[in-house]
Design a protein around this nucleic acid. Structure first.
Lengths: 202, 202
DNA sequence: CAAATTTGTTGCCAATAGGGAAAAAGTTTC
DNA sequence: GAAACTTTTTCCCTATTGGCAACAAATTTG
């Protein structure tokens, strides 16, 4: 079988189509419409003037940071979309898949990582499958720690997840955990076979 | 066994400690220092005046949206932290886990979703395990479609993933895919048992 | 189809952000 | 410890934002 792995088709990159200069207003307007709010309602909810909102939606003004924040709250806008910059690209209309066991391997002292969907470089989440090599906490010289959030799902085996501020968490097949990866953390296999987990970090 | 599921300990919520009025400057300063940049270097890199940056760091001015964006690029600031509002909070120092099969169920015509780690409401990724009920594309009245990115991992069984712009993708246990969820998409089980997948959307 | 009401857009003006340059504070060097 | 240099803060000024209110457009009502 060939290492078929990635495809790049479809509407692909709409380069300069980011909230940069223009589209921001449109995004906000869409969000507002989607919630079925009028300018006045939305404006009041966000505690800003309706004119201001109008101007923002028509790109007649570059909103300030806190105005944006208020709008995000009101309209349930997710941060990511807003910050797409033309250049660092989004994944509009893209797809990438990885067959079981065909990810890109990367080994450390305590883990054996298999990065998934690596062809899609501009994606925002980082998924990988890891085989836990560590068998004892002492094998970690230092905690893994990096700003962001992390989700972990136990594919097979069982393990203990150590996280700062908390007591160790015993996990087995099918269990999952979500945590602030800014906290130090590390996994240790407790099953006879090495535990395998799926990690998604952000 | 009791429905033990979530824990809230550690440094937890620092309530009004959000970038709201004050802390934003501190965050930016920290980020800059961490990269070992001087005001001038950072300012130049972000294409803004050094005085401006100084004022922002000292909370003497409320930066505009695009200034913030430029800074985020330059300083590798992640969006989430910046937008934490006192109230909806971030997940700093938090952790939440879900034991196998104990997630919050949510059913649709074609899927049976089990939401994971739901106690951590302010998390940015949305992980859930789904059992694919659909057995034929025709069962989808319309594609699922929502702005964002999505990662999927096949836990068991096999399925066909239909996505707009692409030919259907056959997947089995251990395969994974990452795609723009703005594209219409839908899954159909092809194995005798219903396929189970782990989804993480953003 | 005109009046009434609601929704969205434009002027206008006070308040303030952002940049240049000078002053102040902090470092290093001799 | 003063001089030389670097880094940060403070003024000052112009450009823009954001809100109020008047205006225009669209929708509803009688």
């Amino acid at each position: 079988m060939e290492p078929v792995q990635t495809e790049e088709t479809g509407p692909a990159r709409d380069a300069g189509d980011a909230p940069d200069g223009q589209v921001l207003g449109q995004m906000i307007r869409d969000a507002r419409k989607e919630k079925g709010l009028t300018l006045e309602e939305a404006a009041k909810a966000a505690a800003i003037g309706r004119s201001t909102l109008s101007k923002i939606e028509n790109n007649l003004t570059k909103p300030s940071f806190d105005i944006i924040r208020r709008l995000m709250q009101t309209l349930d806008l997710k941060t990511p979309q807003l910050f797409v910059q033309s250049g660092d690209g989004d994944i509009s209309g893209r797809r990438d898949y990885t067959l079981a066991g065909r990810g890109e391997h990367q080994e450390t002292a305590t883990y054996d990582h298999e990065l998934l969907c690596t062809e899609l470089t501009s994606k925002r989440m980082l998924p990988y499958i890891s085989t836990i090599k560590a068998r004892d906490v002492s094998e970690f010289e230092s905690w893994v720690r990096h700003r962001g959030e992390e989700f972990m799902f136990v594919i097979s085996g069982s393990l203990t997840l150590y996280t700062e501020h908390y007591r160790p968490l015993e996990m087995t097949e099918g269990d999952s955990v979500y945590y602030d990866s800014g906290m130090g953390h590390g996994c240790v296999s407790t099953s006879t076979e090495d535990a395998r987990v799926l990690w998604v970090s952000l």
